[in-house]
């Protein structure tokens, strides 16, 4: 397949800079796969799995928030958090899941606590599902 330049930049630094053949991410309006020769395109990212195919290798990652942009054939992914499946701290995600679950089942939790817990729960679920099947 024809490769295209791909950059993945998070606040923690440049995580990927090179050629890729395909990238699959979840935007707020659904899963999108980008191949070489895509038109100029910008979409905000949701929470979900991202798959990068580069040099025949397929790598998955948990990708949360931020945006995806394709400008003049160059693809830039600017997520808030992006963790390769093998880097995910599974015990931590598990603990976070438990904590969030506790808050959500507590009837005395305040509205903001519930919202935070829900967001945490969703992040933990994404991480778990991505790390679960490498």
């Amino acid at each position: 397949m024809t490769p295209f330049p791909l950059k993945i930049v998070t606040p923690d630094g440049l995580l990927f800079d090179g050629e890729a053949e395909e990238i699959l991410v979840r935007t707020t309006s659904g899963d999108v796969a980008i191949l070489a020769g895509h038109i100029n395109y910008v979409a905000p990212l949701g929470m979900g799995r991202a798959t990068v195919v580069s040099g025949g290798n397929r790598r998955t990652a948990a990708c949360i928030g931020g945006m995806l942009s394709v400008v003049d054939g160059a693809v830039t992914l600017v997520p808030t958090t992006f963790e390769w499946a093998e880097d995910i701290d599974l015990p931590r995600a598990e603990a976070s899941l438990q904590r969030a679950d506790k808050v959500l089942h507590d009837k005395t939790s305040s509205d903001t606590d519930l919202r935070l817990a829900e967001a945490r729960l969703r992040r933990a679920l994404v991480r778990k599902s991505v790390a679960g099947n490498l």
Partner: peptide, 20 residues
């Protein structure tokens, strides 16, 4: 760059990106 496609719409992309 001319003719960027925004999904769902440029307004919504804008609203989503500003807090980020």
């Amino acid at each position: 760059p001319a003719g960027i496609e925004y999904e769902p719409s440029s307004e919504e992309v804008f609203e989503a990106i500003i807090p980020e």
